[in-house]
Design a protein around this nucleic acid. Structure first.
Length: 289
DNA sequence: GGTAATGTCATGGCTCAGAA
DNA sequence: TTCTGAGCCATGACATTACC
């Protein structure tokens, strides 16, 4: 007796954009539940779409849309990061030959979709999914042996001892970092104690990240029209005295070129946090091992 | 109208956390 | 220790759209 759910149409770019913005706001304020949004957040996002666009959609539909956009984003990032490819941010398209499109399409079915329908709001997607999705050969998944990106991020903000300890304890880093440990059996209390210490630190780092993100969103609203502040970033970078050629220096430059938001985060970071932030990003871009 | 491409929905398998 | 509920991912089915 289950009535068929009406099929929703996400054709309106305004709705899509509002959806992404609402998701981003909720992630900033309430954090994530795994790689997705929390239950209460879905409710808020749904309310916003209903109130602002008269767009009625349930949680499962929003989740599906979220997953779909995320998959496209993963493919988009892979293409964008490929050396030799030309991504045009103005047209939001890739300048690749037919052969390249075909070759990429064989590796990833979403390539063809991107070719015909560019990723909507790349900036919003980047903010929303960056650090959550995994791309390429280093993908994270339920069966992945690599660390979960989200927690990998946090772990890098720990001091090196902490991080090293975690790696020693968990050869399959994803077991711990994904929050889905497969190694319950035979693990003593010492691990649990260390994990508690780690969790406490994680919470602290999480608070810091949330605070920074909140400031980011607020600043985004107030300063959408303001010009970029590359010079200020460079000035702060020079003060770090890392020197050209240093991977940290190169990574920082890379990040400055990524987006205005990253530059804003950089400017707001405490000097003591700058290195771990850059190192974390460096690992992401494979500049650090 | 037929067909292919694209987007949305539904479901199964896997895993984990928490309760019993 | 076992059971149960929930989340995530992968995948296939189905609906819609665009093109010929």
């Amino acid at each position: 007796m289950s009535e068929k759910k009406p099929r929703v149409s996400w054709k309106s770019e305004a709705v899509d954009k509002a959806f992404l913005e609402a998701c981003l706001d909720e992630v900033t304020i309430n954090g994530r539940d795994g790689t997705s949004l929390k239950g209460c957040s879905w409710k808020v996002v749904g309310e916003k779409l209903k109130n602002e666009h008269n767009f009625i959609v349930d949680r499962a539909q929003m989740k599906n849309r979220y997953d779909y956009i995320k998959k496209k984003f993963v493919t988009w990032v892979k293409l964008r990061n490929k050396t030799g490819n030309l991504y045009n941010p103005v047209t939001n398209t890739f300048s690749m030959s037919d052969e390249e499109w075909v070759a990429e399409g064989k590796l990833d079915k979403y390539v063809e979709k991107l070719r015909n329908a560019p990723l909507i709001c790349p900036d919003l997607c980047t903010k929303l999914f960056e650090g959550v999705v995994s791309t390429g050969v280093h993908c994270w998944g339920p069966s992945s042996t690599l660390p979960h990106p989200a927690e990998e991020f946090s772990a890098h903000d720990m001091d090196e001892d902490h991080y090293t300890q975690m790696e020693t304890d968990a050869p399959h880093a994803s077991d711990e970092s994904s929050g889905r440990s497969k190694h319950h059996e035979g693990q003593g209390n010492s691990k649990r104690v260390r994990r508690n210490i780690f969790d406490d630190d994680l919470r602290e780092v999480g608070k810091e990240i949330v605070n920074v993100a909140k400031m980011l969103v607020e600043s985004e609203r107030l300063n959408r029209e303001k010009k970029d502040d590359v010079d200020a970033c460079m000035e702060k970078l020079e003060k770090m005295e890392w020197g050209e050629g240093d991977p940290r220096y190169d990574t920082a430059l890379l990040l400055f070129g990524e987006s205005a938001d990253l530059r804003k985060v950089w400017l707001r970071l405490k000097t003591s946090s700058c290195e771990s932030w850059v190192r974390n990003a460096g690992r992401k871009y494979r500049l650090f091992e």
